[in-house]
């Protein structure tokens, strides 16, 4: 437990000094959002399209930043140093919490911007925020694990999106569906299926990652 917290703190400290991941992820989100907004123009898209666009922006922005945390360890050759002092599961969880915070920060910026620029009318904030909150666990859990895998491979950048897309697709599909429902209905029960799926996905992917992380990390 203590190790998880220490690794998390260390990554925050490092990030605070370089601001690499946070810059990459925020700029990516803002650039794609404005690109989407320009190309749509004054046309008001349906909630279905908007929900999909929102998740596509969220997904690809997180793809630009989530892998950084492991790639940095490999590229600065600190991975071995860390390996000498830490248990694998605490490394995974420490990095997972860091990515979780990164995603929450991204959403804090992205959600108000998206609602304002794209004229996205959320009827039930309860469903919307709950979707975001639960979805984050799945995104960060799967993303962190795939980041660990690709940090050991030779071509890192392009591979991350290729590998994480099939793994994170359930989050994307249920997330889009739940977001659409947030814009259409007020009752929480309407999005029950999606939220359950997101929750189950988050739990399973994190448990599987903790079990499998050993094999990625230990040579």
């Amino acid at each position: 437990m203590k190790q998880i917290w220490l690794i998390f703190l260390k990554d925050i400290q490092q990030e605070f000094k370089t601001r690499y991941a946070i810059n990459a992820i925020m700029l990516f989100a803002i650039v794609t959002l404005s690109a989407v907004s320009f190309s749509i123009g004054a046309y008001t898209a349906t909630t279905r399209v908007l929900a999909a666009l929102f998740w596509i922006i969220l997904f690809f922005s997180s793809m630009s930043g989530l892998s950084h945390i492991f790639i940095r360890e490999e590229e600065t050759q600190t991975a071995d140093t860390l390996k000498l002092v830490a248990r694998p599961s605490s490394i995974y969880l420490g990095k997972f919490f860091f990515n979780l915070i990164l995603l929450i920060l991204l959403e804090v910026i992205l959600i108000p911007l998206f609602i304002a620029i794209m004229n996205f009318k959320v009827v039930s904030f309860q469903i919307f925020l709950l979707t975001m909150f639960i979805g984050n666990f799945g995104l960060a859990g799967g993303g962190t694990m795939v980041a660990a895998i690709i940090s050991k491979a030779s071509t890192k950048g392009a591979l991350f999106t290729v590998l994480s897309f099939p793994i994170l697709l359930p989050v994307l599909i249920s997330g889009i569906s739940a977001t659409r429902k947030a814009a259409e209905s007020v009752k929480l029960m309407d999005a029950q299926n999606e939220l359950q799926a997101l929750l189950a996905y988050g739990v399973i992917i994190i448990v599987a990652s903790i079990l499998l992380f050993d094999f990625v990390w230990n040579e």
Partner: peptide, 18 residues
Amino acid sequence: QLYQELSAQENIDFFARM
């Protein structure tokens, strides 16, 4: 390698507490 962005003291603290 050590963590380049962090100070010596932060590095030492990190490894010692780990």
